[in-house]
Simulated scan of single mutants.
Amino acid sequence: MTVARHYIMHAKEGMDAALETALRAIADAVRPLPGCEGAELLRDIGNERRFVLIERWVDIDAHKAAAGSLDKGVLAPMMAALDGPPDGIYLDYLIR
């Protein structure tokens, strides 16, 4: 059962390029982790400061286990560019 971990993030004013770079690095770091089936990064066409990161995992437990093995240094640039905490949810695929 593949699940999606969906995050919506907003960049601080003037930090959209920095957040994009940081999220690209996170997606690259997440893809090879055990249980990850891919990661996508999108930007809101109407709001260049809003980004969506979608990770695909074999299940929720795989995502939670991988979080512990992710290099925390890769998260620091994202945290510095964020305007508030990410909004994250798990989603089931109904049609794919």
Score class of each variant (00 low, 15 high):
Arg24Pro: 04
Leu70Thr: 03
Ala76Tyr: 03
Ile54Ser: 02
Cys36Phe: 03
Val58Gln: 13
Arg49Phe: 04
Ala27Pro: 03
Leu41Ile: 06
Gly68Asn: 11
Lys12Ile: 00
Pro34Leu: 00
Thr21Gly: 08
Arg5Pro: 05
Ala17Gly: 03
Pro86Arg: 02
Ile26Phe: 14
Phe51Thr: 08
Leu82Gly: 12
Tyr93Thr: 14
Leu42Val: 13
Tyr7Arg: 12
Glu13Phe: 08
Ile26Asn: 07
Arg43Val: 14
Tyr7Trp: 06
Glu37Trp: 01
Glu40Thr: 15
Phe51Ala: 08
Asp59Lys: 03
Gly35Trp: 08
Glu13Asn: 14
Asp59Trp: 04
Ala11Ile: 03
Ala27Met: 08
Glu48Cys: 11
Pro77Glu: 00
Val74Ile: 07
Ile60Leu: 10
Gly35Val: 01
Leu42Ser: 15
Leu75Asn: 11
Glu55Cys: 10
His6Arg: 14
Leu91Met: 13
Glu48Gln: 15
Asp44Trp: 01
Leu19Cys: 07
Pro32Lys: 00
Ile45Asn: 15
Met79Trp: 11
Val74Pro: 00
Leu23His: 13
Ala27Trp: 10
Gly35Lys: 03
Gly73Val: 00
Leu70Gly: 01
Met78Lys: 15
Arg49Asn: 11
Val52Trp: 09
Gly35Arg: 02
Leu75Ile: 12
Met9Ala: 14
Asp87Gln: 10
Gly35Phe: 08
Asp92Thr: 07
Ile26Lys: 05
Ala67Lys: 12
Val30Phe: 02
Glu40Cys: 11
Gly88Leu: 07
Ala62Asn: 06
Ala67Met: 02
Ala11Arg: 06
Ala67Arg: 12
Lys64Arg: 11
Arg50Cys: 07
Pro86Asp: 08
Ile89Cys: 06
Tyr90His: 11
Gly73His: 04
Glu48Ser: 15
Asp61Ile: 08
Gly14Asn: 11
Arg43Ser: 07
Glu48Pro: 11
Thr21Pro: 01
Met9Cys: 12
Val74Lys: 05
Gly46Asn: 10
Arg49Trp: 02
Val30Gln: 10
Asp61Glu: 13
Ala25Gln: 13
Asp83Trp: 08
Leu91Ala: 13
His6Gly: 15
Leu75Ala: 06
Ala39Cys: 14
Arg31Glu: 03
Glu55Trp: 07
Ala17Met: 03
Met9Ile: 07
Ile8Gly: 06
Met78Ala: 13
Arg24Gly: 07
Arg5Met: 09
Ile45Gly: 14
Ile8Phe: 09
Ala76Gln: 07
Phe51Glu: 09
Lys12Ser: 01
Tyr90Ala: 06
Gly84Leu: 00
